[in-house]
C-alpha cells in the first residue's frame, strides 16, 4: 500500500479539488431560486404601491384606519388639547425619547400618521384608549400617547411612522 502524505498537491488532487469545487458551486447556485421564491412576488410588490388618502372627511378628534402593504395605518386628526398634551411632555423621561415635532410633518401638527402595530409583538393598539388618550394595546397592555410614543408597558419603541408626504393640505400619499 503506497500511502503517501505528500505535502505538494498533485495533478490528481487538483482534478479532484476542481471537480468538487464546481459541483459545490452548482449546489450553491441551485439554492438561489429556492430561496428567492420565498420573497414577495412581483404582484405583491406591485400591490404595495403608494396609496393616497383624502383627509377632508376626517373630523376633528377622529382616527381612521387605512391599509398599506397589509399594515393598518392610523390617520389621527388631533384636537388642540391632544396636540398640547403631546408637545408638553418631558421628552427626556420617555422610554423612547422623541419630541412630538419629530413625529408629524412641519406645519401639519393636527395630522398624526402612524403604523398601528404595537412595537412589542405586533398586535393592533386600540385608538382613543388608555390613560394618555392615545393608543392602548390589548395584548400585553402597552400604552401610547397621542403622539404614538410608548409610555407604559412592555413595548420598547414608539409606534413606527410610515413614509408619507402631503400632496396638498387635505391629501397625503403613504408609501
Amino acid at each position: 500500500m503506497t500511502t503517501m502524505s505528500s505535502a505538494e498537491p498533485t495533478r490528481r488532487d487538483f482534478l479532484y479539488i476542481a471537480t468538487a469545487s464546481v459541483a459545490a458551486f452548482g449546489a450553491a447556485a441551485t439554492l438561489v431560486p429556492l430561496i428567492a421564491q420565498m420573497n414577495p412576488d412581483a404582484s405583491t410588490i406591485a400591490a404595495g404601491a403608494p396609496i393616497e388618502v383624502d383627509l377632508t372627511p376626517i373630523a376633528d378628534g377622529q382616527v381612521i384606519k387605512v391599509f398599506w402593504r397589509g399594515k393598518p395605518i392610523y390617520v389621527n386628526h388631533r384636537t388642540k388639547k391632544q396636540i398640547e398634551e403631546a408637545q408638553n411632555v418631558d421628552v427626556a423621561k420617555l422610554p423612547d425619547p422623541q419630541p412630538d415635532s419629530a413625529r408629524v410633518k412641519p406645519g401639519h401638527d393636527q395630522w398624526q400618521v402612524l403604523i398601528g402595530i404595537c412595537t412589542h409583538l405586533g398586535c393592533i393598539p386600540i385608538a382613543h384608549q388608555g390613560p394618555y388618550d392615545g393608543y392602548f394595546c390589548p395584548c400585553h397592555g402597552s400604552v401610547y400617547d397621542t403622539s404614538g410614543r410608548i409610555r407604559q408597558g412592555p413595548a420598547p419603541l414608539n409606534l413606527a411612522l410610515p413614509p408619507y408626504e402631503f400632496l396638498s393640505d387635505t391629501k397625503i400619499r403613504i408609501g
Binding site: P33, L34, Q37, D41, A42, S43, T44
Partner: peptide, 26 residues
C-alpha cells in the same frame, strides 16, 4: 404558491409562471 381551488388553480399556476421569483423555473 399554488391554490387548490377550481376557480383559482389555473390562475395560481400562471401566477407562479409570471410573478413568483424564479417561478417559471420551478
Amino acid at each position: 404558491h399554488y391554490t387548490p381551488q377550481v376557480d383559482f388553480a389555473f390562475d395560481s399556476v400562471e401566477r407562479i409562471m409570471r410573478d413568483v421569483n424564479y417561478g417559471w423555473l420551478l
